[in-house]
Amino acid sequence: MTAALSAPDLAARLEKEFPGAIVESNADSLVVDSVKLPDIASFLKNTPELDFDYLTNLTAVDYKEHFELVYHLLSISRNHSLTLKTRCYDRENPTVPSLVALWNAADLQEREVYDLFGIVFSGHPNMKRIFLWEGFPGYPLRKDFGDGV
């Protein structure tokens, strides 16, 4: 059985490593500051007893006042999982650090999030639209898409 790691326990540990980086931690997810995201992700991946080597799913949710990026992490060797979240409050130029350097799986999925939400992943080698064509007006999965029409 894949064990979901307890977010509060992990949060306490991460707080020691990265003071002030943890925004919130509830039963099943861990919300971190987007600036510290690459460091925390790298820590999660490279710490032997955590060993999150598999980025299952990457997506975003538009909560109107902020975007929430959701990373579902998994450790194949230790068979445990974690939901990592980060928030982005800027609607005009939302920017979040890219995780492609850590998990190649982020490549296409970050492009998809960029295409449909307009969130730019800084450090992504090929930040282009993926499903829609260049010049498509707006970002469809935002909740305000189509409001002005």
């Binding site: 080597d53 598999y54 980025l55 299952t56 194949i76 998990w103 190649n104 799986a105 490549d107």
Partner: peptide
């Protein structure tokens, strides 16, 4: 497709 690549690319 190497093992490392397969895991890293999910």
């Amino acid at each position: 497709l190497s093992r490392e690549m397969a895991i890293s690319s999910a």
